[in-house]
Design a protein around this nucleic acid. Structure first.
Length: 887
DNA sequence: GTCCTCACG
DNA sequence: ACGTACGTGAGGACG
């Protein structure tokens, strides 16, 4: 028999809100009532297994019973905002689950429930109404069950009432229940009832006479007394109250029972809500198996040695192959393959099936015949030594045999923190698959291989399955956004360049690093003692909190609070204090010494591999603007500015007989700004004099070129930087220590000097506001959601992003092109020369000493011709025996 | 895990 | 009236 499940929306939200402890998701949205509601919903679904469902809400969130009680007691508070905010959200969630939500002006949720339940009853369906409201009991019958959730001591139980249960508990039938309430009234519901008649009297009367009509038919039979008088005087009240209490069952709802049919709750949209609200425990319900998706799949484990060999031979011949390797602590545990069919295979590395065997077998794949797809091809190349390089073939052409799903996803939305197969499945294929977290959680993969191997199998197979099935569609999206060329000509070939850089690593003199660390330790000890002496006590100098107390409270320095948590003690604050309190210079020195020791001297030492080299990583899917980032260790922030730190750069050296050639773009961002804006004056400036800061100073401050002082030049330089960063008078003023007003006149003068720049920057702000994103010269997209914020600060921030990102991003594009071209040119030259490191506008190459000059020229020429702008790109090249001297 | 600080571009 | 320059990663303190 068909079964309909009805939910009383507000009532259950109210129960949930007060029954579940208050919590929020990371966006700060209160979600406890939503959570509690869904908890009850899922619980009832599991036990009732209905095939139809609907939820009813009042149009105007009526005051809840709970609060009415408080109102009655004279302590009424407005419906809590935390609950009110969750009402529209639960409706959205329900709609995302394809659950019909009813709300009708002029009718209460009760009336909707009454009408739907009656309709279902007449269609011979079973009905369950879930509500916390006793009034609903009048709907109970042998077909209609009222379920009332009760929470006590954190455990939710459900009390069920058919008509007979109502009789058992209240001595009256559901119909009579209406009359009882009409007589006794309900102050919290504004039901007057008959004055002087309470629950006991009302129940007795109805039991005796059957109904209010019955009472008045036999009113004379009642023995004289208070009750009789009250009833006679309150007859009108009684009937009017009954009208109010009676739930309508004939509301004109425009619907068909079929609309309420349950198809599939576990939709992609609903899944997104669960993730957004961080309801981890519900995510399991969205298991791929239980959701009805159009994509079929089959996962099979292959562990028998001979079967693995056969499978590998077969897969190696397929036209396309997605590969996923499962690792834990750097150790390969298993692998999955999917050839684009519905089937994915799981191969654990066990017994005779070793990773070496599988990897070397797969390395025989001919990339010209088999298209290789993976979440991270760069990582894949670390394990499997594909023969993709061919003499005389550019890396761009070689890379055509591969596709990297993470990079594609990154280009589509560069603001994400990570790119996982489950979000790609969702965004590209529109299906839900369990995320790694749901499958593995905090468990150790190696342990799961024994206890719950299916989880690991799913992890591996979903990844290869999704890669194989999503990459074409994802590339289509790239194409629609005009980024296919960016991907195929720049990002995809670049991953091979980066892989070679990471494999190559860079030599570091370990002994010198260690002895430098010891030297630093001695200096630190000396200055530490001095600081304690001057402070008059020992404290943790590394703790900004403790330091703040010492400086601003104990020693009474001016400066006060600045951060949320306490005093600001950063370098710019301390430098201002240093003029009056020489003592803080010791703090500054202590800071730079300990930074140097922990992050660089000691930090880098830990990364030196067996081959005496550091193999840092260069990430392609991290930054919002398109730049690379580097970690483990970060090779893009090795000290160079401060004298003391230069010693660190010196320990980076070429191998014996080799030299470093370092090439860096001079002012690439400013040149790009000039080019993109098309400002004639700035273009002319670059042609007039190569010192752009000096000539800017001359023009902006209106002094002859040869009278530009160092001070003026440096201010002009700061303005130039400011322009690139998305100028603000406050920021500029702060940076060069002038008033905001003064900074403002600088900016105005700058825009007067270069009128094209202001127009150009405004153009990007408009575009970001209009489209929600901006683009670089090569079509790379950066979304700017901040610009649509209701928060003033956020909007301003968005505007600066809109001004800066096209410039920074275009510079990143050009540098990437340069790297690919340099890579190809180096290979073509036949010389033993490798790119080791990239630092945004700088490339470091290691080559034989005798080739240094040739390589220098190659680098300069190649990098300068990476893009043709209205202002020439300029590259400075240097050679040296260490990174410092080469720079 | 988050904040602060600081190294680089 | 709000409270900042743009983009990163690492180490130490602290809850």
């Amino acid at each position: 028999m068909a079964k309909l499940l009805l939910f009383d929306g507000h009532s259950i939200m109210n129960r949930a809100f007060y029954g579940v402890p208050d919590f929020t998701n990371s966006e700060g949205i209160h979600t406890n009532a939503i959570y509690g509601f869904l908890n009850i919903l899922f619980k009832v679904l599991d036990t009732e297994k209905p095939d139809h469902i609907a939820v009813a809400f009042d149009v105007h969130a009526k005051t809840f019973r709970h609060e009415k009680y408080e109102e009655y007691k004279g302590t009424r508070k407005p419906m809590q905002d935390e609950l009110r905010q969750q009402i529209p959200l639960i409706k959205e969630v329900l709609k995302s689950m394809d659950i019909s939500v009813f709300e009708m002006a002029g009718f209460e949720a009760d009336d909707i429930l009454g009408t739907l339940s009656l309709d279902a009853e007449q269609k011979s369906m079973e009905v369950t109404v879930v509500s916390g409201d006793r009034d609903l009991l009048q709907l109970a019958s042998d077909k209609v069950k009222i379920s009332m959730p009760k929470t006590s001591k954190g455990v939710t139980t459900v009390e069920d009432y058919y008509d007979k249960d109502v009789v058992e508990k209240y001595k009256v039938t559901p119909k009579q229940f209406i009359d009882v309430k009409a007589l006794m009234g309900d102050s919290s519901d504004n039901i007057k009832g008959v004055a002087g008649i309470g629950e006991k009297t009302a129940t007795n009367l109805i039991v005796t006479y059957g109904s209010i009509d019955g009472i008045y038919e036999h009113i004379e039979e009642l023995k004289n007394g208070r009750a009789k008088t009250n009833l006679i005087e309150g007859k009108e009240d009684a009937y009017f109250s009954r009208f109010l209490v009676t739930i309508k069952r004939d509301v004109p709802i425009d619907y068909k029972m079929d609309d309420l049919k349950i198809v599939n709750f576990y939709t992609a949209d609903a899944y997104e809500y669960m993730k957004r609200f961080e309801f981890k425990s519900f995510l399991q319900r969205f298991d791929f198996d239980s959701s009805e998706v159009e994509v079929n799949y089959e996962f099979a484990e292959v562990s028998d040695f001979n079967e693995v060999v056969d499978l590998l031979e077969k897969m190696k011949k397929s036209k396309e192959l997605a590969i996923s390797i499962i690792k834990e602590n750097g150790e390969s545990v298993a692998l999955s393959l999917c050839d684009g069919s519905d089937k994915a295979y799981f191969i654990p590395f066990e017994y005779f099936v070793t990773e070496d065997m599988v990897f070397s077998s797969l390395a025989e794949i001919d990339p010209n015949k088999t298209h290789i797809v993976s979440m991270s091809v760069k990582d894949l190349l670390k394990d499997i030594d594909f023969k993709y390089k061919e003499d005389g073939v550019s890396i761009k052409d070689s890379s055509k045999s591969f596709d990297d799903v993470s990079i594609i996803a990154y280009l589509l939305d560069p603001l994400k923190n990570e790119y996982t197969y489950d979000s790609i499945a969702n965004n590209v294929l529109g299906i839900n698959v369990p995320a790694r977290e749901e499958l593995i959680g905090k468990n150790k993969i190696k342990e799961l291989m024994y206890s719950d191997r299916d989880k690991v199998c799913k992890l591996a197979c979903f990844e290869s399955f999704v890669c194989a099935h999503a990459y074409k569609e994802a590339k289509k999206k790239l194409d629609e956004l005009g980024m296919l060329k960016l991907y195929e000509d720049i990002e995809r070939p670049l991953l091979f360049v980066l892989n070679d850089m990471e494999k190559e690593g860079i030599r570091v003199k370990k002994e010198e690093l260690v002895s430098y660390s010891e030297k630093l330790a001695q200096s630190i000890e000396v200055i530490e003692k001095k600081i304690y002496e001057e402070a008059g006590e020992e404290f943790n100098i590394n703790s900004p909190k403790q330091l703040g107390v010492i400086l601003f409270e104990k020693l009474g320095m001016p400066g006060g609070k600045k951060t949320k948590t306490g005093y600001s003690t950063n370098a710019s604050v301390l430098e201002k204090l240093a003029a009056d309190y020489p003592f803080v210079n010791d703090i500054l020195e202590y800071r730079s010494l300990t930074k140097l020791k922990s992050t660089y001297a000691d930090g880098l030492t830990n990364y030196i591999a067996e081959d005496g080299r550091i193999h840092g990583k260069f990430n392609q899917t991290v930054t919002a603007t398109g730049r690379l980032s580097s970690n483990d260790p970060n090779l893009q922030n090795i000290p160079i500015r401060m004298e003391l730190g230069k010693a660190i750069r010196k320990v980076f050296v070429p191998k014996d007989g080799y030299a470093f050639v370092d090439a860096d773009y001079s002012q690439i961002e400013l040149r790009i700004l000039t080019h993109m804006s098309g400002d004639e004056v700035l273009i002319e400036s670059y042609k007039e004099d190569e010192d752009i800061h000096k000539i800017t100073a001359s023009k902006v401050f209106n002094v002859p070129l040869d009278e530009v002082t160092k001070e003026l030049r440096s201010r002009a330089k700061a303005v130039n930087f400011g322009i690139v960063y998305g100028i603000s008078s406050f920021g500029l003023g702060e940076n060069i220590g002038i008033s905001r007003k003064e900074a403002d006149t600088y900016i105005k003068e700058y825009f007067k000097t270069y009128p094209g720049i202001e127009e150009f920057l405004n153009h990007f702000i408009t575009e970001a506001k209009d489209k929600g994103y901006i683009k670089t010269m090569y079509g790379r997209i950066r979304p700017v959601p901040e610009i649509k914020s209701s928060n003033f600060m956020q909007v301003k921030f968005g505007e600066r992003i809109a001004m800066n990102s096209p410039i920074q991003g275009s510079a990143a594009d050009i540098m990437k092109i340069a790297m690919i071209n340099v890579y190809d040119e180096l290979r073509k030259s036949g010389l033993d020369a490798k790119i080791l490191v990239q630092v945004h506008d700088e490339i470091l190459v290691e080559c034989k000493k005798k080739d240094a000059e040739r390589i220098s020229k190659l680098l300069k020429d190649t990098m300068e011709s990476a893009a043709s702008l209205s202002v020439d790109l300029e590259v400075e090249v240097n050679t040296g025996d260490n990174w410092l001297d080469a720079h």
